[in-house]
Design a protein around this nucleic acid. Sequence first.
DNA 1: GAGTGGTCTAGACCACTTT
DNA 2: AAGTGGTCTAGACCACTCC
Lengths: 233, 233
Amino acid sequence: MTQPLYKVVIDTIVGRIASGALPPGAMLPSETQLGAELGVSQGTARKALSELEARGLVQRAQGRGTFVTVRTPESSLFNFFRLRNPDGSQTIPELVSEHVTRRAATDTEASKLYGTPRDVVEIERVRSLSGVPLVHEVSVVPLPLFAGIADRAPLPNTLYVFYQQAYSCIIVRADEKLRSIPAPAPAAAALGLDRDAPVLSVERIATDVLGRAVERRTSICATHGYSYFVSLS
Amino acid sequence: MTQPLYKVVIDTIVGRIASGALPPGAMLPSETQLGAELGVSQGTARKALSELEARGLVQRAQGRGTFVTVRTPESSLFNFFRLRNPDGSQTIPELVSEHVTRRAATDTEASKLYGTPRDVVEIERVRSLSGVPLVHEVSVVPLPLFAGIADRAPLPNTLYVFYQQAYSCIIVRADEKLRSIPAPAPAAAALGLDRDAPVLSVERIATDVLGRAVERRTSICATHGYSYFVSLS
DNA sequence: GAGTGGTCTAGACCACTTT
DNA sequence: AAGTGGTCTAGACCACTCC
């Protein structure tokens, strides 16, 4: 039941990235160096690096080297913000307002978030597309993992880039539940919608590279002139 | 600018699968045999087979061999029917009614579907979950690729399994656009909804293994007690 | 020119399934 | 026992980037 060597290599590198020892943009050792350092052949080191590239954690370029993937606001939005123009082109959501508060976790929050936290931080935001407020978004993160985050408001537009830069917390996956519902009161008020206007409700659990459920986010989106894009395979 | 050998191997096998020479469930040659047959080393054949496995086109099992992936109604629904119970468990959609008609393609249909077809076949269906009609679904396929399909009604519950078995057309990808809208008249009538009940509109383009846009599907879903699940990464 | 990743080979040994 | 895929090694050559 012993781990294959290439998986040991993968775990080693994931650990270095998750700990911040290898920050975004850092160059990794070459295949040969990595193999020598960890006592495996170049081919085995290569297999590990290729799998990390497939996971999106590093990027490789012939002649240049292997680098820890840098998350820019653009790449983060591309992956995790699915509201697009009808032709599929990106739209950048602007921040209209933000409220960051620290509070006790509800029972569901405690049960769904990593570490069953007693306290959480709630980030409530209204976002607009092309100047029109269309998204009401409430993100909840466990306080222990994000110590001091409430004092750093206002937060940057793209939270996942911020999580990585400030807390070495790398979001790699988001599981979402979508429903079509009449606009709930707080969202209707924030977005200036009729009480029963149809809106898209998106409930998200975001998971980091270590497999921890790190954020719970509920978004209410008015899809006027925009669409939520997904690709299934 | 010549193709790497392993890509040649991949294309060879994809061709055999898409042509029906390797039907679902068929066993592929072993790595050694395949290498000998195509004049490459076992390692190169292995790389090709591994990539085909990553694409989901074949399945490999230690000690048994490599097999063309069999699409069952279950696996097809798992991949391409995203409406689930709130806890994430599968729900099997039953067929309530079906109308299959042959007609001329609209301009958008002709422009978006493979081969810019003059004629298409439209499959209109109402589906129910746990006995409640919740989905109104209109699928449009180009007539040339699916000759005679209109005469084979009623069609099976899962169209993609049928496309593969009857036409060697393997759907590997679906791009969807979601919006929340008031129920349109035909869907409201078919599902027994109020005229302005909020529903999920899903517009899908399905693409086959040869990269051809093979089906356009518009679904109207009432998300009463159900949710549309996606995983982003 | 030195260093990087990308492709390809040949061979070894292991774990697993089937007969 | 025979045949399969899974892991691992060692070495070669190529294409590319950067200095």
